[in-house]
């Protein structure tokens, strides 16, 4: 088997806040093959976005990668000099962010922002850069792309802005795009369009995709494999169909049960009781134990890894274990 495109081992990203050390990402490991689509799922504060930022070296202070390894295309990204990492960003490793309202610069035209991205990695004339931008905008489905280059972000709708962000990420044909909840801020109908477009574009260009979302439904329609994160750790991973059909970890079960689509009409939605633990003071054992219906005394110890084929879960009492 060839080496994976991306290999993350024991990644730990901590935030040195005044109140103490917040362990936003605490020992995350996973592999990603070229062209694969990976869903990264979790509640707010589970560390999924910080994992994404860590991959690109975009963790803002007081946050810092304190340990672990990120190997991308055979190169180690943790501890790489900033200039080398910058040369990689946007070219081989791109990112699409959550809120298209805030992620485009309000005072620069779409064309200028995309041309800057082209010229960050290539010596290109303004004309050539704008032509490239127009071509990619057309690919993501923006009509009259060449004319829209001189428009400002406020003249675009939310969905259009996100298409611009996706087009910008695609400019250099990266090997991996990290998409951080790119459809969360959009209407449901627009969400579906963007999802379909993204899937088609990734397949067409062989780009691998890490799709970060709190929404299991969007992930299930898009990803090949899914990672479920809780309190800075991966609690379950596996092929998306199998995980959603029969989750091993009680937390994944809880997430699925709280989806409105899974509920019987007229009945109350089933919630996961309690709230996510503070990242400043994580329990030594399973972080989910205080909210878990299956928890007992054993859960005070760090959970063992349960393997079932290509599936993994970190739990003392997995559901349907060895079934």
């Amino acid at each position: 088997m060839t080496a994976p495109l991306l290999s993350v081992r024991d990644l730990r990203t901590h935030f040195m806040t005044r109140a103490g050390v917040a362990k936003a990402v605490d020992g995350v490991s996973f592999d990603l093959a070229a062209g694969e689509i990976l869903g990264l799922v979790g509640e707010s504060g589970s560390g999924k976005s910080v994992t994404g930022f860590s991959l690109l070296g975009l963790v803002d202070p007081p946050g810092r990668i304190v340990g672990g390894s990120i190997r991308f295309q055979g190169r180690e990204l943790v501890g790489m000099p900033p200039a080398a990492l910058r040369a990689l960003r946007g070219r081989h490793l791109a990112m699409v962010f959550q809120d298209p309202q805030a992620t485009l610069n309000p005072v620069l035209t779409i064309g200028a922002q995309m041309a800057l991205a082209v010229q960050a990695h290539e010596r290109a004339s303004d004309r050539a850069a704008l032509d490239r931008a127009a071509a990619v905008l057309a690919r993501v489905g923006i009509p009259e792309a060449a004319r829209r280059l001189s428009a400002y972000p406020h003249e675009f709708s939310g969905g259009m802005r996100q298409r611009v962000a996706i087009a910008t990420a695609l400019l250099h044909g990266p090997a991996l795009i990290v998409a951080d909840e790119p459809t969360t801020a959009l209407d449901v109908s627009i969400q579906a369009q963007i999802l379909a477009k993204m899937k088609a574009l990734a397949a067409e260009s062989g780009t691998a995709l890490i799709w970060i979302s709190h929404d299991l439904a969007t992930v299930s329609s898009l990803a090949d494999r899914v990672l479920v994160m809780y309190a800075g750790r991966i609690v379950e991973s596996g092929p998306v169909g199998a995980v959603l059909r029969a989750p091993l970890h009680p937390y994944t079960r809880g997430l699925l049960d709280s989806l409105p689509a899974m509920a019987t009409p007229g009945e109350k939605l089933r919630q996961i009781p309690g709230a996510a633990p503070s990242l400043l003071a994580l329990p030594a054992g399973c972080a989910f134990a205080p909210r878990c219906p299956r928890a007992d005394a054993a859960c005070a110890a760090p959970p063992p890894e349960v393997a079932q084929g290509s599936r993994r879960a970190a739990c003392h009492h997995p559901l349907e274990a060895a079934a």
Partner: peptide, 22 residues
């Protein structure tokens, strides 16, 4: 601290360009 600055960095712009242009 605005999001588009992070976007600019994600595009691989140098720090000088991020400040000067964005």
């Amino acid at each position: 601290s605005l999001d588009f600055v992070r976007t600019a960095r994600a595009k691989g712009l140098t720090e000088t360009r991020v400040v000067a242009r964005h």
